[in-house]
Nucleic acid binder design. Sequence first.
DNA 1: CTGGGGAGGGGGCCC
DNA 2: CGGGCCCCCTCCCCA
Length: 526
Amino acid sequence: MEQQNHSKQLLLQLNQQRAKGYLCDVIIVVENALFRAHKNVLAASSVYFKSLVPHDNLINLDTEMVSPSIFRQVLDFIYTGCLSSSDSVSDHSISSLLIAASYLQLTELAALCRRKLKHNGQTPSSSNKMTPSSSTSPTPNGHTPGPLCLSSTPLHNHQHHNNHSGSKKGSQRNQRPSQEGRLREDLSEKVFISGSRCASLSPSGEGRSNGLGLDLSKRSPSESTATEEVSPSSLLQSSSPHSSSLSPTPTPPTTSSAKPEPPKTSTDLQPRAPRKRPRGDKVTPELEDGEVDGEENGLDQSEGSGHSGRGGGGGGGRKGRRNGNTNYIYRQPQPGFEPGVGDNLYVCIPCGKGFPSSEQLNAHVDTHTHDQLYLKDEEEEEEEECGGYLKDKDPDTCPDDSASKGMKPDPEEPGHLCTVCSKSCKDATSLRQHEKSHWLNRPFPCNICGKLFTQRGTMTRHMRSHLGLKPFACEECGMRFTRQYRLAEHMRVHSGEKPYECQLCGGKFTQQRNLLSHMRMHTSPS
DNA sequence: CTGGGGAGGGGGCCC
DNA sequence: CGGGCCCCCTCCCCA
């Protein structure tokens, strides 16, 4: 007995989930684009990915080997078995695909491309050298791929999937908890860099050279700025012209050089807090209702609106709306950008336009040139330098912004007073930082959800939540945290220490906030 | 069902 | 830029 079209339907479901970013547990960075996918699918299709995905959740591909548009076709092929893009039939595209397929060790796709080129009278010799193992036509399993499948294929059909969330309930129900948990831990553990390097994340800060634990120290000096601004590091350090980046020179991991460290034992164990379920678990029932939320995998925890204001973003993530910009993640949204509005869940970050499908977003993203992005960067820098003040701030009281620009304050001046609130700061740097808190214009956008921040550090910290980076692990229970402070706070759970005491009733608390909450109970009229 | 406590998580801000 | 602290939101548990 055999279920007709079982594999086809399965693949179709997976592709639909990919289009929504649902259960995607790996991000592939290609030049200026991010692609989300499923590790299992990648591993089943590519020896290259198979060796990487068990340990890495962020894979940076060599842009000389594969471009975003080519990788999009590659990914489509992986998920559909077809090359659907119309330009894929050109010899140039086929050659690029062949290079990418060889690089990624997608033997079936490579063989398919070779046959196509051969059929067109081309010789695919240029790329054969990269993967000798794949230069022979038969695939490892002996399967001979069919002819190129063009856009008429019904499998590749992202546009219509957004409204079908209900149809995938069953298959997702059982996958969600383990995959999310594992991803969060994996992301916490290490992040793949440049295809061959792992940055271990530890509370001690080992291997941590940017705010998110990505080891950026191996950047090739010859790397172009274009790559820099859209590389993972630029995702994390969006506005810094000096931020280091990743050297996109991954080597297909056919040798031991690419062998990543095995996951640490502590993270393999399912960490559970004593007596109580960790928060990470509670998202499961929400998804069981068929909701495709914006925080799956911990990669997409959109806070929803751009400006939350103080307290407005509290608890963000759990109730965050679906972001949906799952395929391409660009930089610097336009003012007023609000991701995931209405049905246009696929949002282009640079211009803020929303699209109902990843395909349409992809097509739109391709219209952005690097020049446009450069211009945005320059404008962004300029704005950060001089344009961020409150509109209601009296220009007379801030004649030259010298303090906010960090321009040599008078050393004889006794204090550095904020021109808005008269707060005294100890130096010009502190003053500048403080004055930013009065800005309405927040110069640091999250490259994933578009949320804006006044401080780069806050944005970087926020990005950690998107990437699921939790470098700080409790040695007692294995629970992991994004902040060391949280871990220290958590450790009181194990130690039983309750340093915060209510002066009214003598009640003791492990956390100050809970004491404050308790005090409100005392002071509330009721 | 409700209120209080415990705790995870996010953002703002200062050092 | 990271650490630390504060405040807030939220959820879960339990009496």
